[in-house]
Design a protein around this nucleic acid. Structure first.
Lengths: 347, 347
DNA sequence: CGTCAGTGCTAAAACCTTTCAGCCCCGAAG
DNA sequence: CTTCGGGGCTGAAAGGTTTTAGCACTGACG
């Protein structure tokens, strides 16, 4: 184990030229070498346990078998970890490596990460985001393959492929779920859209979720009995918002929470008042955060498909075609125990 | 932006040799070039916006400015995400990149990841683990710098540096905290060590935590009023275990839960029986999982210092000295609202 | 005047691969 | 007998960097 064997070593052992060895090992189509030579070369390579030096290959080819992943805080934060799982899975299937950098939302860090990736000649870049944000991307080399995962880019011309959750569908589905269980008159909504003028920089998709919710309501000719804006979607705000609804005396039979953390707070607030889920109040939510399965009863929620988005993004960036267009990934409904049919007679 | 400028381009523009440019740009100590030449070269480099090609440099140097991170499921899973934050932070400070691979605990995947890293000539490897496990590592090249983070290696000769949480201290601290609050007679412990014969492959450190707990008890001459084995440390098991203790009628005033998810279940069980935290029962725990701050009252817990372990591991692997030895990282106690002093008179 | 030390700089090799261009030989076609 | 085509193979360049060895010159010193 003194030094790594090189192409030349293999060539020497096989009694052939480096050219021949390279040709055979990469089985180039046009090359016509005798079956005997091919066998000898393979044998020699195996014997020396030869593995090509990627640095040398990169130098020659300008290609690295490596994809860059740049995100605000996906890797660093627990919520979207599954995205990396998806990315890594398909990269691994395709024998590619993944180089990671986090920007923490600092443009300076973004620039640095980008520079780093481009220097290393990655074969493509996936931009990720924890919340589905609109990214400000500096101009990139013409040839660079780019996909944005759970995010979109400012280059509005659709230059860059983007992978996003199908929020409209999900919003519609969750509201319908409640409606179909007979909750027509008593639906409360905890959490509302950022009131700021459609700030895509904070979320590209949340508007679609609300649109889906509204669509389901309109279709059913129903109106929520209470809607409460809780500011940021954290448990304590969900707690406070729910408390507010309950104290208002609105006849609530079901709560649609805008994410699982808010739902978590809702559970706490309901519990405090001695109300049971789902017997007294049904709850539906979004995200499928890990806590959704910890709750009792476990929470019925529309899953944010981080892993699938990761897979899709990597497939696009490694795929045969120049990536482009918008790709929606379904948000599957995780049916658990937090919704029960409203008994008409008892209402 | 037709092609990246190379050293030769800079040399041509500055009217110097490539050698001179290389010397200047890396400011090699021994080289004596005229101040004028140095200035011209810097100027030329700036003007062309020259950045060296890492592939070429790697080829020549055998060094890449890249560290490999291989873990079972750290990246992929929410619990230990902070470890990556630590790793990335210091890698970034030191202008290094991080190449990531996950093995999902398959030896096959480990071998593949390792091969990949070694091929790419990473300058060092950090092995991570979500739970503090003992890793089976295949033999690595003599020269490779290796650190295990939140894990240790089978090479018992202390060859590889390892970074681990100071579990003994933490176990002792948490039990003392309960004792100092006057809970002497009514302490219950939810969760116990894996009964299997000291299976280091599942956890290198958990033994130390229990030893710390026992030490504090012995020092105080106290004995737990209940100890319940809950199998795996999940919320539902914490719920069941706590329920069991309560139904046994043991006079419990405080619960030491072996992690936050177990504590989460304990809250649920207590809540169901109408017992309040901390008024009726105090709770202490370990991990500082995100849910610890979601609970009401928020949970007092000893933090698993993933981020710090990540930082430390990266510092060791990038440090000036050959890494080695065992490094314990403190587990800070996050004091929140789940413990109250036991009122002697009322007991 | 010869030697020597130091100053300022550069040619070329080495790192390892891929690939272009072309060599040699043999059998077949003209 | 020449020419040609093609099968089987290889030499050498190219890709961009670092580093060794060394060149040419100046001034000082013996």
């Amino acid at each position: 184990m003194t030094k790594r064997p090189t192409l030349a070593d293999v060539a020497a052992l096989a009694g052939m030229s480096k050219t021949a060895v390279s040709l055979v090992l990469n089985d180039r189509p046009g090359s016509r070498l005798s079956a005997d030579a091919v066998a000898r070369i393979h044998e020699a390579a195996r014997e020396l346990n030869y593995r090509p030096n990627p640095a040398a290959r990169s130098l020659r080819l300008g290609t690295t078998g490596t994809i860059g992943f740049i995100s605000d805080e996906v890797t660093i934060t627990r919520f979207a970890s599954a995205m990396i799982r998806g990315l890594l899975d398909v990269a691994d299937e395709r024998d590619h490596g993944v180089l990671i950098a986090e920007t923490g939302n600092h443009p300076k860090q973004l620039a640095k990460a980008l520079e780093f990736m481009i220097d290393r000649q990655v074969d493509g870049i996936v931009f990720g985001s924890m919340a589905a944000r609109l990214l400000d991307l500096p101009p990139l080399p013409e040839s660079m393959r780019v996909v944005t995962a759970n995010s979109a880019s400012n280059a509005g011309d659709g230059t860059y492929a983007s992978v996003l959750p199908a929020e409209h569908e999900a919003g519609r589905a969750m509201m319908r779920l409640l409606l179909e269980h007979g909750h027509r008159e008593g639906i409360g909504i905890i959490g509302s859209a950022p009131s700021a003028p459609a700030n895509k920089r904070s979320s590209v998709t949340i508007g679609a979720r609300f649109a889906g919710i509204d669509e389901a309501l309109t279709e059913a000719g129903a109106t929520p009995v209470a809607v409460v804006d809780v500011g940021s979607w954290e448990p304590w705000n969900g707690y406070a918002g729910t408390k507010q609804v309950l104290e208002s005396g609105a006849p609530v039979t079901a709560l649609l929470c805008l994410n699982d953390r808010v739902a978590f707070g809702a559970y706490q607030s309901l519990g405090e008042r001695g109300l049971r889920v789902p017997d007294d109040v049904s709850i539906a939510s979004f995200d499928d955060d890990e806590i959704a399965s910890y709750l009792r009863p476990a929470l019925t929620t529309a899953k944010l498909p981080y892993e699938e988005m990761g897979r899709k993004a990597m497939e696009l960036v490694l795929g045969p075609d120049e990536p482009g267009g918008e790709h929606l990934v379904e948000m599957p409904v995780q049916v658990r125990g937090s919704i029960r049919p409203l008994d008409r007679s008892s209402s």
